[in-house]
């Protein structure tokens, strides 16, 4: 098996796909948004409990591929306890990493364990999968009541 395929499907990603964390609606949530990828039928809902500008709790439900499921799972772990602005900044950094030119330095040094997704930049068709939950999260932060799509 080729190395970039192993790079895409790292064991952390496979683990989070099999056992997604925060894969439920939190007890309290005051903002939600749905993320839909019309191309492959992936559908995720992200629930946030935001108080005083801080993400107190976060969870998600739905179905998706390994990349979108693991990305949602790791996202929920990472943004819990963050200020809204920090979560937004992290999304920006994450998006830059997965869309970076494969020849360049992927960056993402301050993304912690989210760097397991750096292999996505070799697979442009999968960027939408990796960012689906993030788009929904961002939508939920602004809770506009609209469905986030990757289109």
């Amino acid at each position: 098996m080729s190395s970039d395929l192993r790079e895409l499907y790292q064991s952390v990603i496979l683990d989070h796909n099999k056992h997604p964390r925060n894969f439920c609606k939190p007890k309290c949530s005051n903002r939600t948004a749905e993320g839909v990828n019309p191309l492959c039928g992936d559908q995720l809902t992200v629930y946030l409990d935001v108080e005083d500008g801080v993400v107190k709790d976060v969870g998600f439900s739905g179905t998706g591929c390994a990349i979108s499921t693991a990305s949602a799972s790791l996202m929920t772990q990472t943004i819990k306890g963050m200020k809204i602005e920090e979560a937004e900044r992290l999304f920006k950094g994450f998006r830059e990493m997965v869309t970076a030119d494969p020849q360049s330095d992927p960056g993402g040094k301050d993304l912690g364990k989210l760097t397991v997704f750096s292999g996505v930049r070799e697979f442009p068709m999968r960027v939408k999968c990796a960012t689906l939950a993030w788009h929904a999260m961002s939508e939920a932060l602004h809770d506009t009541g609209e469905t986030a799509t990757t289109e």
Partner: peptide
């Protein structure tokens, strides 16, 4: 395995 993952690996 989600079909999208199958598709990516087959493509590879």
């Amino acid at each position: 395995v989600h079909p999208h993952d199958v598709g990516s690996i087959l493509d590879h």
